[in-house]
């Protein structure tokens, strides 16, 4: 017993170091492997409040750019409205539509904090669980895919941006529906890479890359980027594709969080399948 106390006394600094280091690694491990992100749920509110204050001040400097991008988006959406189309003779009748059921809901939010040069980048937005946001929801900007929600507090949410080593987004080529996975290699925030596209798939430059229907996070066909360059190493089964992202993460200000109304149903069904096997 005396020896034990002596040991503890002699090495208390090392023991303190060891236990604190162990504690950090446990949190890190949990976060990386199980996506629990519980630490962020506790601390997120404090940090986000701080960034909100900073953002309120700095936002004035970029109002012009925000307005421009919103106007461009408005124009595009107006072009899709019914009254922008020429009616070719048929009179429209209102019917209770049972064929098309709404599946996706969009929640608008503003970016409060953002980074682009780190290996793992995160975005904080100013809407949280009170606005209906939950973790694992897809997020898009006015040009394309932005990321996936990781943790949510009452008024804020943290998004794992597409510029993050842990973010993998299921994508496909628009012209032939060939599947691939969008992963960022950490080099340039303007480009990402599309992996696991089979070598027999024909590719040309500027092919559009969109989200696939395999993902429950994003609706099918949300634009991601276009093929910037591609190559195929001898003996490799997959193309090396560099994708130019449509979303400009450096100037990102307003985003939409996607709520998939039928997601639980799909997940439940797939979960039932898994437990069968």
């Amino acid at each position: 017993m005396r020896n034990l106390i002596f040991f503890l006394y002699k090495y208390y600094t090392f023991l303190l170091f060891f236990s604190l280091e162990l504690f950090s690694f446990v949190i890190l491990y949990q976060y990386n492997n199980y996506q629990r992100a519980s630490f962020l749920n506790y601390t997120g509110a404090v940090a986000s409040g701080f960034y909100q204050t900073v953002n309120n001040t700095t936002n004035y400097f970029s109002l012009r750019n925000i307005n421009d991008s919103l106007m461009a988006e408005n124009a595009r959406l107006r072009a899709q409205m019914l009254n922008a189309y020429y009616q070719s003779g048929f009179t429209q009748t209102s019917i209770n539509d049972t064929v098309y059921k709404q599946q996706y809901d969009y929640i608008p939010a503003n970016v409060v904090n953002n980074s682009i040069t780190k290996r793992n980048n995160y975005i904080t937005i100013d809407k949280g669980s009170l606005a209906g946001i939950k973790s694992d929801m897809g997020v898009i900007g006015s040009n394309g895919v932005v990321g996936i929600v990781t943790s949510v507090s009452d008024h804020y949410a943290t998004i794992r941006s597409a510029l993050n080593s842990n973010t993998k987004i299921s994508c496909m080529l628009k012209k032939n529906n060939a599947f691939g996975s969008l992963e960022w290699n950490g080099d340039d925030p303007k480009f990402s890479s599309l992996k696991y596209v089979n070598k027999h798939v024909p590719l040309t430059l500027n092919d559009e890359v969109v989200t696939s229907n395999y993902s429950t996070l994003f609706p099918e066909g949300i634009s991601v980027g276009k093929v910037y360059s591609h190559s195929l190493d001898a003996g490799d089964n997959f193309h090396l594709i560099k994708v130019e992202l449509f979303t400009d993460f450096a100037t990102l200000k307003s985003v939409y969080v996607i709520r998939n109304i039928l997601k639980d149903e799909q997940k439940q069904l797939e979960g039932a399948l898994k437990s069968d096997n």
Partner: peptide, 29 residues
């Protein structure tokens, strides 16, 4: 022990503000 403890809290504050649990803590300690 105070240096190690201060390092830990410095890391914790940085982690809080950069959405990276454990990362700065481990390296600071």
């Amino acid at each position: 022990w105070l240096v190690v403890l201060i390092s830990f809290f410095t890391g914790m504050v940085m982690d809080t503000f950069s959405s990276t649990p454990g990362l700065h803590m481990a390296s600071c300690v």
